[in-house]
Simulated assay, not measured.
Amino acid sequence: MISHYDWSGGREAMLRFGPDTGPVVVAALPLFEEANRTRAFVVTILRALAERGIASALPDLPGTGESIVPTSEMTLMRLHEAYEAAVDTFDSQGRHCYGVSLRSGVLMDTLGLLYGRWYLAPQSGPELKRELTRIKRAELGREAKKLTEYWYYDNDLPEDAADPPVEIAGNLVPADLMTELSAALLYPKKNECLPRRTVRLETDPKPADLKISAAPLWRRAEPDNDSELAVLLADDIAAWVRQCEG
């Protein structure tokens, strides 16, 4: 069902699935175009979780989906605060929340009061920044050689003037967010006091708790879905949540 949550910036929409009691999976989509390509896939996972008796929620975070905040005003702090507020919706009811994040969605859950984190193909801030820069280079073609390390800042503006957002693949990305991404690293798993499970594609050489053979939906030109993979991942998430719950 379509619900909502409130945070300091206003009221945002939130899809909810599954029972009204027990643990809740709070999902976070990747940023920008990858969100459009994977939203249907994540919703399929959440519906499969509901069939397995696990509740879930997919909040629109500021600057994403149908948010009241435009993408051009997105900041990591706003994303963190809103995610925390979405989690608090359930925590205030005494329900344990578990983060399930895809790609750069892992950057959202910093402040959320979670009992565990489940990641699919996690992407750090610097990795996302490099990807956005690569896309911009492809858009510029020959002009790309003019891009410097901080190409998204306008050096011709007065010092006290705010830099305008830069357009990348049709998205207006705030210049300051690009800098924020440089320092947005994943919390080392060895220092994590909460359960964390990482799932990666077989083609990814980085360590993982589970490797799967699948196509990266986030790389496709158009939004797509993979119901078989969604069921496989829903089984994994459901088993992991139940294990965490004891």
Rank of each mutant, 00 (worst) to 15 (best):
W151M: 07
R130L: 09
Y150N: 12
T133I: 07
Y152C: 02
G112P: 04
E131H: 13
K146W: 07
E143S: 15
G112L: 09
E139M: 11
I135V: 14
L128G: 05
E143H: 13
Q123Y: 03
A121N: 06
L157R: 08
L140P: 13
P126T: 05
K145S: 15
Q123R: 15
L120M: 09
R117Q: 09
A162M: 05
T110E: 10
P164G: 04
A144M: 11
R134Q: 14
D156P: 03
G116K: 03
T148I: 01
Y115R: 13
D160F: 12
R137E: 15
T148Y: 00
Y150A: 12
N155T: 12
P165Y: 00
R134I: 06
P122Y: 04
N155I: 09
T148G: 14
Y115P: 00
A138R: 13
R142M: 13
W118K: 07
G141W: 07
K145E: 14
Y152S: 00
K136W: 06
T148K: 09
E149R: 08
Y152R: 04
D163V: 04
V166I: 13
G116P: 09
D163K: 01
N155F: 08
T148A: 06
W151K: 06
I135T: 10
L120E: 01
K136M: 14
E159V: 14
R142E: 15
D163E: 03
W118R: 11
G125P: 01
L140R: 13
K136A: 14
P122V: 10
Q123P: 02
L111K: 11
K146T: 11
E127D: 14
A138H: 09
R117S: 10
S124H: 06
A144I: 09
P126Q: 04
E131G: 13
L132F: 04
G112F: 07
Q123F: 05
A144F: 10
R137D: 05
A138N: 08
G125N: 04
L140I: 11
D156C: 07
L113V: 08
L111P: 01
I135R: 13
A121W: 01
S124T: 15
R117F: 00
T148N: 05
G112D: 06
P126N: 03
Y119R: 08
D154G: 05
P122G: 06
R137G: 15
P126K: 02
G125E: 03
V166P: 03
L111I: 03
E139D: 09
L113Y: 03
P164A: 11
L132Q: 00
A121V: 05
P158R: 10
A162W: 00
P164S: 05
L120K: 01
S124G: 07
L132W: 00
P164L: 02
E127L: 05
P158Y: 06
L114I: 05
K129W: 00
E149C: 00
D160P: 06
